[in-house]
Amino acid sequence: MVGAPRGGGELIVTTALSVTNVTKRFGGLTVADNVSFDVPQGARMALIGPNGAGKTTLFNLISGVHKIDAGSITLDGKEIKDLAPRTRVHAGLSRSFQNIRLMPHLSVIENIMLGQHTQASGLGALLQPIAWQRKSIWRERAIESMHSAGIKVDPDASVGGLPYGVRKKIEVVRALMSRPRLLMLDEPAAGLNPRETAELSAFLKAVAWEGLTLLVVEHDMSFVNDLCEHTVVLNFGRLIYNGPTAGVHVDPQVREAYLGTRKSDKKEPSHVA
């Protein structure tokens, strides 16, 4: 199922994101313990692990919400560990949040257009009255992305009253509006029904075909199996697996990690068995 046209075939594989010996402590708790892995350009990689393993924290470190204590993070070969979060967005990184973080008082289209902020540089773009312009390029691009993601709601509706699955999709689209080279999604399928999950998977494959690199945190292993060819597994802040997704469920360390901390709320209890 791996698509041939992506990247440069087997010849040149460049690295989109490189995490090297990253360590982070919160007080006495080491939430990232010497973590190293690479995400190749154009890859669709999963980041999985039991609850509290440190997946969201790793996203926070990569996107710059928290500073790392040690190690290095490069995006397209450039060191980004000391950059402000917004500068990392300019550098091509974009993310969604585990708990939906849409702006409750903004409409659907406003939330999506907010994602374009780093694209609209200069005072002229900042002072453009986009809310009054029904035909602006910005609004048109946002509507287009809504449609390609299958979001069929009134663009001017308030986001508050929308179903969970739709809001989750809006967040993915908003993250895409900055035209990232690396998109990091934190549990995008959580709370979606099977049909919505399949739709999301198809949509993400489509955007990845256009050259986008994906790093996805997800508990739903059927989603991961369908979308991601590579998987890294975290447990107590340590990387315990880095390889093909197909090999995850037979790896002894991974099995132990999941069996040891098995939570009843897992969507797919059978995914490591």
Partner: peptide, 18 residues
């Protein structure tokens, strides 16, 4: 739009790139 976004969720607005 950015101002209203900050009012709603400052931390997320930072990560969006504002």
């Amino acid at each position: 739009l950015a101002m209203r976004s900050i009012n709603d969720d400052e931390e997320a607005t930072v990560v969006i790139g504002v």
